[in-house]
Amino acid sequence: MEIVVCVKQVPDTTEVKIDPATNTLVRQGVPSIVNPFDKNAVEAALQLKEKHGGKVTVLSMGPPQAKDALKECLAMGADEAILLSDRAFGGADTLATSHTLAAGIKKMGNVDVIFCGKQAIDGDTAQVGPEIAEHLGIAQVTYVAKVEVNDGVVRVEREQEEGYEVIETSLPVLLSVVKSINEPRYPTVKNTMKANRKEIPVWTATDVEVEPGLIGLKGSPTQVRRIFTPKQRVQGEMIKAETPREAAALLARKLTEAKII
């Protein structure tokens, strides 16, 4: 079974800072991590491989330092890793990103299952996975909390607010997984050493079949114009009085003076 996992290197959200002058994210000095949902996707792929055999390849689009994220996935147990990196890919929105990732998957050849995390914690759009499936013309299921494959039939439990929806489809398929699907394993020392020695191939725009007008900033119909931190709300006031009746009267008077009531 040929399994691909799309992963993204994202800024650690506990360390995110915004430049007040430019209203953009400050990435310099901010640690990067593997998108947490993508780790669940890697774990789901590894479990599927352990049950049915095959190969797990992790794929990412990003700058050269994204190799660190791919090496962490290799240390978890993935077999291969590929990085799509080219200045032409820069500034891509979700549509341009999905076009590039889909082109990378097409270059790999026949793929049975594609795993993605539900969403990336930096953009929170949850769009890239479904868009990849559309580019490839294959089935997709989102919010996957459980997956089983038997004789080419994929049976999944899709997480809903009030329960689970059971869906069956056929291979090939793209599945975007939720956090409750599993607990990602820790990288082993042996696999970490192997990952550090492994050479990760880098594919550029000339290596994959992409249309120049559909990648990077030029291929992005949406753009982020401004990012800002909301102003901190003023703390409320505690109404203190000897009795509840007096407290209610004091509150009513303050609300009246503020012309709220």
Rank of each mutant, 00 (worst) to 15 (best):
V208W: 00
Q65S: 15
V10G: 14
S60T: 11
P212H: 04
E134S: 07
V4I: 15
T222D: 11
M1S: 11
L70D: 03
V202T: 15
G109A: 10
Y186I: 10
A92W: 03
E80V: 05
N35P: 06
D122N: 12
T13G: 08
T256K: 13
D122K: 13
R27V: 04
E50H: 02
T169V: 10
R158S: 08
E168L: 05
L74F: 01
V202P: 10
E246H: 00
E159Q: 15
D12I: 06
M108P: 04
F37C: 11
L255S: 08
A248L: 05
G123D: 15
K51D: 08
G236R: 02
C6Q: 09
E43R: 03
S32A: 15
D38A: 04
H52P: 07
A248K: 06
V177T: 04
E237Y: 01
R197C: 07
V58F: 01
I261T: 15
V42R: 06
D93A: 06
A78W: 00
V156L: 07
P230C: 05
K118C: 11
A205W: 01
P172S: 12
Q47H: 06
D124M: 08
N23G: 13
F228L: 12
T125Y: 02
K190T: 12
Q235R: 14
A41I: 01
K190G: 09
